[in-house]
Design a protein around this nucleic acid. Structure first.
Length: 290
DNA sequence: CACTTGACCTGTCCGC
DNA sequence: TGCGGACAGGTCAAGT
């Protein structure tokens, strides 16, 4: 569920909450793999290191350390990263911050303690997410990173760059192509549906049948939708929260996602939910004809 | 090679 | 009420 806007929201939170803090210890809650303290020789680059920066690439968080290592985190579907300060931990927090008061909970996989008493929780109900240490210089070369397409919000990523990339997937549906992280990075199911609706393209339409002009519109809509969502703190469908444990409000601005049975905001036709590219897909059958 | 489907997990919701 | 099954959707591996 965390897509680009959600991960970017977490990144912004982390950069104010943990940059400059020093790792004191880590604790694993019995999760078998994919966590940094499974190997002592790697863990030495975590404990004692200061957080120097927090970056994002696609849907991955990059927590850079003064040791020359980077903690790379992918939240997949249900991952959360929540930072709790001493202030909250000892009862000074706001009563509405129930996530914070309930931690750790049954979904907690790992926590990292900083020397000032701040604690970072990595929660993941479905255990698809991972957190791994890599030498910072090698991060761009790890398999997951090398295959990624451009960041949609980089101004240099224009239609002239996007169109040939999508055309490599001419044989598949436009939705599958937009979800393909090698075409462009960071779009997931929510923002694929939203941007295809905005561009008036049927998600099941073959890429080959979408004219360049429409692909150009689509890229612009992807950018617009992503920017709005970041502004709204991302989408909370079920369990996404930001680094302070708070929900995002983008879904109240969504036009089709999770709105099956409701009228299309553009033409009033009832929004339907179908299956495209193996995913639940929301669309307006009037605006988005095949 | 290009593309699609299933696996990875666990909680929730729906129908019987 | 309880139970089984479908579903949620990011990414990789396996299958067509």
């Amino acid at each position: 569920m965390p897509e680009l806007p959600e991960v970017e929201t977490i990144r912004r939170g982390l950069s104010t909450l943990i940059v400059g803090k020093i790792v004191q210890q880590t604790h694993n809650y019995g999760s078998p793999k994919s966590f940094p303290n499974t190997s002592a020789d790697v863990r030495q680059f975590l404990v004692g290191a200061a957080v120097s920066d927090v970056k994002r690439r696609a849907k991955a968080l990059l927590i850079e350390l003064s040791s020359g290592y980077t903690l790379v985190c992918h939240l997949k579907m249900t991952g959360q990263i929540i930072v709790v300060s001493d202030h909250n931990r000892w009862g000074g927090g706001h009563p509405s911050d129930s996530f914070i008061h309930g931690l750790p909970d049954t979904t907690t996989r790992e926590h990292i303690d900083f020397t000032d008493g701040t604690r970072l929780y990595f929660n993941d109900l479905r255990k698809f997410g991972w957190m791994k240490l890599y030498p910072t210089l090698e991060v761009p070369n790890i398999d997951f990173m090398r295959k990624l397409g451009p960041e949609p919000l980089e101004s240099a990523f224009s239609a002239s760059n996007f169109i040939p990339r999508v055309r490599r997937r001419n044989g598949t549906s436009i939705k599958a192509a937009v979800l393909d992280q090698t075409v462009l990075a960071g779009v997931g199911n929510i923002y694929a549906d939203e941007s295809l609706w905005a561009a008036k393209i049927h998600p099941a339409c073959k890429v080959a049948n979408v004219p360049d002009e429409k692909l150009k519109v689509l890229l612009n809509e992807v950018k617009t939708v992503m920017r709005l969502s970041i502004e709204k703190g991302g989408s909370t469908d079920k369990n996404y929260v930001n680094a302070e444990g708070k929900k995002g409000s983008y879904l109240s601005f969504a036009k089709v996602f999770r709105r099956e049975g409701q009228p299309c905001p553009r033409c009033g036709t009832t929004i339907v939910k179908t299956r495209v590219a193996g995913r639940g897909t929301h669309l307006c059958p009037q605006c988005q004809s095949l």
